[in-house]
Amino acid sequence: MSTSIAEPMSEAPIPTHAASERHSESGAIIRDMTIGFADGMTVPFALTAGLSSLGSSKIVIIGGLAELFSGAISMGLGAYLAAVTDRDHYKSEEAREREEVLTKPGAEKEECYEILDGYGISREASQSVVECLTRDNEQWIRVSPE
């Protein structure tokens, strides 16, 4: 049995674009670490430089360590509060979208068309997609603009 060049030699499925392409999911972590490192190093150096003028290495070391610990606590608390705020905002927006899907389905459907129009997809081309999305409220809510 001969195979042409266009046919694969094995029965294994050809990987799709999404399956064959890998993306990093740690961008936010790297960003936070970079900002934290820059901030965490700048202040202790400035503090220890200022304390070094006192002439006591013991004060410089204790002051530097105290600043490192207090800075770590401060940065950690700030990151925690930012994450809690983001979570609360998301839950609030999701609840609002759930309410609007139930009480104003026409306006919410129109928002779907507007979102797709923002990607350059005409109303006619997006009609079947919007119809599929609006059949399932959970999928419909996930497409909300917020």
Rank of each mutant, 00 (worst) to 15 (best):
G55I: 07
A12H: 06
A79P: 01
G50L: 15
A38V: 13
S52I: 04
K109Y: 02
G27I: 07
H23N: 12
E97V: 08
G27C: 10
K109V: 00
I115R: 08
A28C: 01
K91I: 05
A107H: 11
C112E: 09
E111L: 12
S70G: 02
A19C: 01
P15M: 02
G63Y: 04
E25A: 14
A66V: 11
L81M: 06
E25C: 07
A28V: 09
V60K: 14
G71F: 06
T16E: 13
S24F: 06
T42Y: 12
G36P: 09
I61G: 03
S53G: 15
E100S: 13
A83G: 00
I14M: 07
P13M: 00
I62W: 07
R96K: 06
S74R: 05
M41K: 00
E108S: 06
R96L: 00
A82N: 14
Y113G: 04
G106N: 14
L65F: 11
S74F: 07
M41D: 01
S52Y: 15
P15I: 01
S24D: 14
M75Y: 05
P13S: 02
G106S: 09
A46H: 15
P44C: 10
D32T: 05
E110Q: 12
G27A: 12
S70A: 11
I14D: 07
K91N: 11
L81E: 04
G71S: 07
M41V: 14
P13N: 00
G64W: 05
G76Y: 02
G64L: 06
E100W: 10
V84M: 02
H23E: 15
Y113P: 03
Y80I: 00
G36L: 05
A82F: 05
T16V: 04
M75Q: 12
M33L: 15
P44W: 11
E25I: 10
A66L: 15
T103Q: 06
F37S: 09
D39G: 13
S56A: 15
M75A: 08
K91L: 13
V84S: 01
E110G: 02
I29D: 07
E99C: 02
G71T: 03
M33A: 15
S26V: 13
S52V: 08
I61E: 02
Y113V: 02
Y113Q: 03
S57Q: 10
T48P: 08
E93S: 10
G36W: 11
K58G: 06
H23M: 11
L65R: 01
S24N: 12
H23G: 07
G40R: 12
E93I: 03
M41R: 00
T48E: 10
A12V: 04
V43S: 06
M75W: 05
A79L: 04
A83M: 00
E21S: 12
E114F: 03
S74Q: 03
E99D: 11
L77P: 00
G50F: 15
R96A: 02
D88R: 14
G40L: 13
G71L: 08
A82P: 03
Y90C: 03
C112P: 01
C112W: 05
C112I: 04
L77N: 04
M33W: 09
K104Q: 12
E97K: 02
P13R: 04
G63D: 05
D88V: 05
S92E: 12
S70H: 02
A83W: 01
L77R: 05
L68V: 11
E99A: 09
T48G: 06
T85Y: 04
A83Q: 00
M33I: 13
K104W: 04
